[in-house]
């Protein structure tokens, strides 16, 4: 029984998100637009919700929303900081890069959390996720500052992972 209700939750969640996107793009209250959006997004959600989300409305739990908010702040700060670092490297006359591909182990369990971590690492400049095999991340690093696994983990992922564990693995 629990599984069935969860399915409905995931379906409604997908429908809601798609409808928000539809109405955000059309920005009109004409009845024809509203009805078309309602039907079309419902159909798309019915066929695609299984691959769209594994969490459904549980993502809107207040504790999770708080941590998602905190994560966005940490991420934005890291994004701006590392963009300035890369800008400095590019403008430096000697181009002081020290690139290499490093790996570290993540302690995240769910696939979705790993994907979010990989994308976050890629979005912050200076680090680029080349591959993700089970729980090992292979990262191309523009300017290596540490060489042992613990230091690599500390420099690249620790800040993000602390919060992601709280969002997805509890």
């Amino acid at each position: 029984m629990k599984k069935k209700t969860q399915k409905w939750g995931r379906f409604l969640y997908t429908w809601l998100i798609l409808m928000i996107v539809w109405y955000a793009y059309t920005v009109s209250l004409a009845p024809a637009e509203l009805i078309t959006g309602f039907v079309v997004t419902g159909l798309i959600a019915a066929f695609n919700f299984a691959s769209f989300t594994h969490y459904g409305f549980s993502l809107f739990h207040p504790r999770r929303i708080y941590y998602i908010f905190q994560f966005s702040i940490v991420f934005l700060v890291a994004l701006v900081k590392s963009n300035i670092q890369v800008a400095k490297i590019v403008l430096h006359p000697k181009l002081p890069v020290n690139p290499g591909i490093v790996k570290f182990k993540s302690s995240l369990k769910s696939d979705f959390a790993k994907m979010v971590l990989a994308n976050t690492i890629t979005l912050t400049p200076g680090t680029l996720t080349v591959d993700l095999i089970d729980d090992e991340f292979y990262i191309h690093w523009l300017n290596m500052t540490s060489h042992d696994e613990a230091g690599i983990y500390q420099d690249i992922a620790a800040d993000f992972e602390k919060i992601l564990i709280k969002i997805f693995d509890k």
Binding site: L79, V86, A87, V90, L95, V97, P99, P125, L128
Partner: peptide, 19 residues
């Protein structure tokens, strides 16, 4: 233009442009 190989160029080209 300035980076030495493809991977570092991907870094510069895709990341500086995100912000």
């Amino acid at each position: 233009y300035r980076m030495p190989d493809l991977y570092t160029r991907v870094q510069a080209g895709t990341k500086a442009s995100t912000l």
